[in-house]
């Protein structure tokens, strides 16, 4: 796709892309190369638990207070983070694009109802709501993804609606209508190709937000207790007061999260400049 090549025209975009590729590889192969399971306890040669150890040979990034390997947890955590990011991005963009298309293209009542719904969605604070929902049901990765989707669809919906509105008034749409093209055909042939780049942009932003929100929820203790994630690692480290003593436990998940989020951000910036050179000023 043309878009991907343009991202590489920007040094920051290239850097971002490299980081994202590395993390993706880690998400796929990480668990296979991880020396330990996410909740597996590491033992010394004398069969005592290797607790709160700084980086050593059999625990590259050191261990937690329960003697779990930080390096392995990080690898497993990468998989959950990216899984949540990817799925919630896809979900929210599909939903948001559908709403935006319908709203912008059909206008009238459809538009009114969908847009008021979007307005309402914009009024709901995510973290408090997600926390209540999770604590009232059983925490799981699936639920987190669902919540992020519910939270995220509203932004692409609004943006894509605006885009469709401006497309709808262009002459080639009129011409197609006059030539007797059906709604489905116009949407698919004329509108969708012009909207897709925006969808892609919001998918990238969605990955970023999804990863960030999952980390935040897990950090607050509302994550899936059976899945290791960066947020969950930070939560455990924070609860154990690792900031005082065990930097090796705090830094890896935090740095991984920051790096990943910043990398996606770099990509979206480069992509945005491609979509709209005027945005350069922003």
């Amino acid at each position: 796709m043309r878009g991907f090549r343009v991202i590489l025209d920007y040094p920051s975009g290239t850097a971002g892309a490299i980081v994202v590729v590395v993390f993706s590889l880690l998400a796929v192969f990480g668990p296979a190369i991880a020396p330990h399971g996410p909740f597996e306890v590491v033992y010394n040669t004398d069969h005592s638990v290797l607790r709160l150890s700084p980086p050593v040979a059999n625990a590259l990034f050191g261990t937690t207070n329960q003697g779990m390997d930080v390096f392995s947890q990080l690898l497993w955590g990468t998989r959950s983070a990216l899984l949540v990011g990817l799925l919630s991005a896809v979900g929210s963009v599909v939903l948001g694009t559908a709403v935006g298309l319908a709203s912008g293209y059909f206008g009238g009542w459809t538009d009114e109802v969908l847009m008021r719904l979007t307005d309402v969605a914009f009024g709901i604070p995510f973290l408090p709501f997600a926390m209540v929902v999770i604590s009232l049901s059983k925490p799981s990765l699936g639920l987190v993804i669902l919540l992020v989707v519910v939270f995220l669809w509203r932004i692409p919906a609004r943006v894509i609606r605006a885009q469709v509105l401006s497309l709808r008034s262009r002459p080639f749409i009129w011409a197609a209508r006059a030539a007797g093209a059906s709604h489905a055909r116009i949407l698919a042939r004329h509108i969708a190709p012009n909207v897709l780049p925006l969808s892609f942009l919001y998918a990238a932003i969605g990955v970023q937000t999804g990863v960030m929100l999952e980390a935040a929820l897990s950090f607050l203790g509302f994550g899936d207790p059976n899945a290791m994630s960066w947020g969950a690692m930070l939560n455990a480290a924070f609860q154990a007061g690792a900031m005082r003593s065990a930097w090796w436990w705090v830094l890896p998940p935090g740095v991984a999260l920051s790096l990943f989020v910043t990398a996606i951000f770099m990509i979206t910036r480069a992509y945005e400049e491609l979509l709209n050179p005027r945005l350069r000023a922003i």
Binding site: Q208, M212, A215, A216, F219, L234, F238, M243, V250, G254, L257, S258, V261, T262, F265
Partner: peptide, 9 residues
């Protein structure tokens, strides 16, 4: 774009 809770920590 940095996660504020990690910055806080």
């Amino acid at each position: 774009s940095a996660p504020s809770f990690f910055v806080g920590i």
